[in-house]
Amino acid sequence: MVENHRWLDVLAHLTLILGVVIVAFPVYIAVVASTHEPADFVSGLIPLLPGDNAVATYASVLEGGVSSQMSVPILTMLKNSLIMAVLIAVGKIVISVLSAYAIVYFRFPFRQLAFWMIFVTLMLPVEVRIVPTFQVVADLGMLNSYAGLTIPLIASATATFLFRQVFLTIPDELMEAARIDGAGPMKFFRDILLPLSRTNIAALFVILFIYGWNQYLWPILITTDAGFYTIVAGIKRMADVVDSEPLWNYIMATAVLAMLPPVIVVIAMQRLFVKGLVETEK
């Protein structure tokens, strides 16, 4: 701290509180909405205080009892989302950690080319290449499958670069010491590199899990079989009713439930996550 005036403290806190309010308000509204009757929300006046319908709403959402608007039980959608998010996060980490290892520690023909090709894919996010990607996935018969949901999203230039940076900070002598100690390439990778990148892996896992969990466009495109609906896409489908008013309390309850797993992941991995972002000592 450079300055230490009382009013500056107050100002800083006010700014932070304002920020929190702006970010948290929509979440609060969602929670509040999920505790009211469906009609309360559509009446035009959005209630600001919790209602008394919470237990009933959440019970029927979890039981999948709102059959008119939810063709798929929420637990199935949560399960699908979980599988998708974990597969994407783990897949991205495995692939990027291996490719970073190859790029940093091996001298193979066309190494530069490989590096630049990975770099170029950075400029092509899923949304840009979504039509050809869909075509490929459809031709391979991967529509309505976990493979189709995850594989096109797994390759990750960003994560590869992150690991490349991490590996570059590890002194060469460590690799040489390991070679003298009789550790071959895989042993060095497993015994030295992976443990040293542990916190980075954890931080990346959190970020990628949320990335996978929040996927919206892609799951909507490639799943037509309700058995593969993910929760985020499911919410959109719930709101997409033609013949009646959307049941906002159920939608909001689903949204609140959809927020829980990422929150749990963040909290569970908080210590490692923060360490991975701030730790510089190697």
């Binding site: 460590l174 010491a177 390991a178």
Partner: peptide, 13 residues
Amino acid sequence: IAMVFQNYALYPH
């Protein structure tokens, strides 16, 4: 052989 490096190169973890 065994080698001793200038920066020691001990495995930090």
